[in-house]
Amino acid sequence: MEIVGERYGRRFTIVTSLPVDIWHDVIGEPIFADAILDRLVHNAYRNALAGC
């Protein structure tokens, strides 16, 4: 949360991870998950990549 909050609106952040729709389950804390996703997804370009 600190890293995302510090970079929000100032620098580019590239994240490779699990699909966004399961982040709440992975993070486990709904308030932190909402805050992180809000900052990452707002004005973001999302590309879903298929695995090999």
Rank of each mutant, 00 (worst) to 15 (best):
V4Q: 03
V15D: 00
I3S: 05
V4I: 10
A48F: 02
P30R: 01
D21Q: 12
Y8N: 05
S17N: 10
I36L: 07
S17I: 04
V41Y: 07
D21F: 11
Y8P: 01
D21G: 10
V20W: 08
N47Y: 09
S17Q: 04
L18H: 05
V4Y: 06
D21M: 12
R39L: 06
T16Y: 12
R39V: 04
I27H: 01
G28S: 05
G51K: 14
Y45F: 13
T13Y: 04
V26K: 11
R7Q: 14
V41E: 09
H42P: 14
R11Y: 11
E29V: 15
R7T: 13
H24A: 10
I14E: 03
G5T: 00
E29T: 13
V15A: 02
R11N: 09
A33K: 02
I22H: 04
I31K: 14
R39E: 06
C52V: 12
M1Q: 09
R10P: 06
R10W: 12
T13K: 03
W23G: 03
D21S: 12
T13D: 02
F12M: 14
I22D: 04
L18C: 06
D38P: 08
T13A: 08
R10K: 14
P30K: 03
Y45G: 13
P30F: 00
V41F: 08
I22N: 02
R7E: 11
A33C: 01
V4L: 07
E29Y: 14
G51D: 10
I3W: 09
A33L: 00
E29L: 14
A50D: 05
A35C: 00
L40V: 02
T13N: 03
L37I: 02
W23S: 03
E2S: 15
F12G: 13
A35W: 04
E2K: 15
V41G: 01
G9R: 06
G5S: 00
R46F: 14
I36N: 06
E29H: 15
T16L: 11
L37W: 01
F12Y: 14
G5I: 00
A33S: 04
V20A: 04
M1N: 11
T16D: 11
A35Y: 01
V26D: 07
V20Q: 02
D21C: 10
R11H: 11
A44F: 07
P19Q: 09
V26G: 06
A48V: 08
Y45K: 12
G5Q: 00
D21W: 11
H42M: 15
A50E: 04
A35V: 03
N43I: 06
I14A: 10
G28A: 05
G28N: 04
